[in-house]
Design a protein around this nucleic acid. Structure first.
Lengths: 332, 332
DNA sequence: TCGTTTTTTGCAACCGGTTGCAATAACTCT
DNA sequence: AGAGTTATTGCAACCGGTTGCAAAAAACGA
């Protein structure tokens, strides 16, 4: 069927080892045989079978990319960055869609069956358990956008969500908002919990500030809209820190549908700074999460673990910054 | 390092073949040995290595998923559907990001190195050449969202873009718009060309209709916005058929920024019916592309090709329908 | 030129599985 | 119980590569 090492060896008149060696970096082959082999390989259109070689080398160059939110456009950007970053380093992403799945065991089993070299869990909602399951199975794993822990059990790359919560509260208070609220993503998500904690910490420390909170069912437009619609029926706050941009956009839509204006009637601040936040009809003030850096760093870390499997776990944090746009009233 | 067939065989006191057989569907093993093997396997935490077995079976259950647009949220929905559909059938998507890449050779080589069982090219912008390159390399391939051809050289699953163009033109004319225009996606994309052709065919057949056209640089918000901004500086049409939803949303944003209203001042119709089109602040009238059906059918077709590699190429078309929302004036 | 050192090469075993085949075991049936 | 079937099993070769090792070839030094 397809061309194998043996075919090339025969045509080139050398041993199979010689052919193998010309295709492996840093192996000992003379220029003469290399040329013979390359000529034969070209003639036959030969390319080494990566999977067969993985059997002996123990490396597949396959990286499991595990995600659970396919309804948040931010993750499209994340996939773009991950796939390109991996490809640039000669690695291949094996995509796993976890939507609805709660038990890590299946994914662990599946990714082990495919002998992935490592796994990147790209999610801000999965519990740390998930990444740990891979570690326990001795699969190098990095949790991107995961929860920061002061004593991480697994490599984590992301942001300090607690600090983001504080930052959001400070920003709202600085703008003169007094009745402020947290409109979080799913309550079960670690990122929601942390952002909530930080937000409350700053907000409740200020004696004149009145703070309230609620949660959207998921990090999605619909959930944000539903929750804000509910809030508008009673006595809404002056400004909301939303779970993330897509929740904020849903909230924005609800506010506008109710005949109110952002930021004149209600202020909004999101988190992520996804592309859409810049769209002129959305124009969302938001906390930028430096996705390119997080992703680069995650890839770097997972490749480092290939060399050094027992590598001591670490948490890598990147700073966030406020992106001023039009959904909050200006600093007076 | 990891548990192999041999370890299980030894513990269970049977031959390696026996172990292999208990893990392969429909092989001949007695209940007694099966139980012994399963017990040993459980004890050791053994799971067969999918890649090693692919060597002899010739099947990896890996499917290359090739995409080139990571800036259009519609494709996040597409990825969701593809990954789930493949997973449900025991297949694994190997994601390839083609952004910027024009030469198929690289992807073909890479995916062949990984012995993917088949490839799905999910793009409405790539030329048919691309899919053909896989076919020429004897890799089963399906082009999803690709150009329909009356004599397809490669399996294509999608919609009739020419008919969509006609449908859009008819819709606009029926609403009483007289100065209508096509605001396409990238001119080089087959889908743009076809939608354009159909649109012009109907529009220019009507003596009272005045038609014009232009193209956005890519299927993206920014490109749509830029192009519409340009159009607004001269004498805009009464209604536009936009390249796709994301281009339409960009156009909508430009229109609103110019202080005009949709649909009162300018009407818009998109194509795809992505989730965002339903968002209340967007509320886009659009032509629904039945993505779930296209994707299901694509997966079905690619798996059928595994059984029957020489399968005669076919084009599968799914009907589209207008989703009435608020970006066109109502039928009078 | 010849002995020594360094490079290059092929052999053969191995990676973790699968499978055709012949031998063995377990059933039927009379 | 014994002949004839059918089901199960293990052997050994193979899938497409890699790699340690020893032999062969080439390069080096004097």
């Amino acid at each position: 069927m397809s061309i194998t090492l043996k075919d090339v060896a025969e045509l080139a008149g050398v041993s199979r080892s010689a052919v193998s060696r010309t295709f492996t970096e840093g192996a000992s082959v003379s220029e003469k045989t290399r040329r013979k082999v390359e000529k034969a390989a070209d003639a036959l259109g030969y390319h080494p079978n990566a999977l067969a070689s993985s059997l002996t080398t123990g490396r597949t160059k396959l990286i499991g990319l595990v995600a659970d939110n396919f309804h948040n456009p931010f993750f499209l950007e994340v996939f773009d960055l991950f796939t390109r970053g991996l490809q640039d380093r000669g690695l291949r992403p094996l995509l796993v869609n976890l939507s609805g799945e709660t038990d890590p065991a299946n994914s662990v089993r599946m990714l082990r069956q495919y002998s992935v070299d490592g796994v990147i869990v790209a999610s801000s909602t999965l519990s740390p358990e998930f990444a740990r399951a891979f570690r326990d199975a001795r699969v190098p794993v990095v949790h991107s956008f995961g929860r920061f822990a002061s004593s991480p059990r697994v490599h984590v790359v992301g942001i300090d969500n607690v600090e983001c919560g504080r930052m959001a509260a400070r920003t709202l208070i600085d703008r003169g908002y007094r009745r402020i609220a947290f409109l979080g993503g799913p309550e079960s998500a670690t990122s929601t919990q942390d952002r909530f904690a930080g937000f409350m910490q700053v907000a409740s420390a200020d004696p004149v500030v009145v703070v309230s909170h609620s949660f959207a069912r998921t990090y999605s437009f619909d959930a944000g809209r539903v929750e804000m619609t509910k809030l508008l029926m009673t006595d809404p706050a002056e400004a909301y820190f939303c779970g993330d941009d897509v929740v904020a956009i849903g909230a924005q839509s609800a506010i506008r549908s109710a005949g109110l204006r952002v930021p004149e009637d209600i202020g909004l601040i999101g988190l992520n700074d996804m592309e859409m936040a810049r769209w002129e009809n959305i124009d969302l003030t938001t906390i930028r999460q430096p996705a390119p850096q997080i992703i680069d760093s995650s890839i770097e870390l997972v490749t480092a673990m290939l060399e050094e499997p027992g590598r001591y776990p670490e948490a890598r944090l990147f700073p966030c910054e406020i992106m001023e746009r039009g959904s909050l009233r200006p600093l007076s």
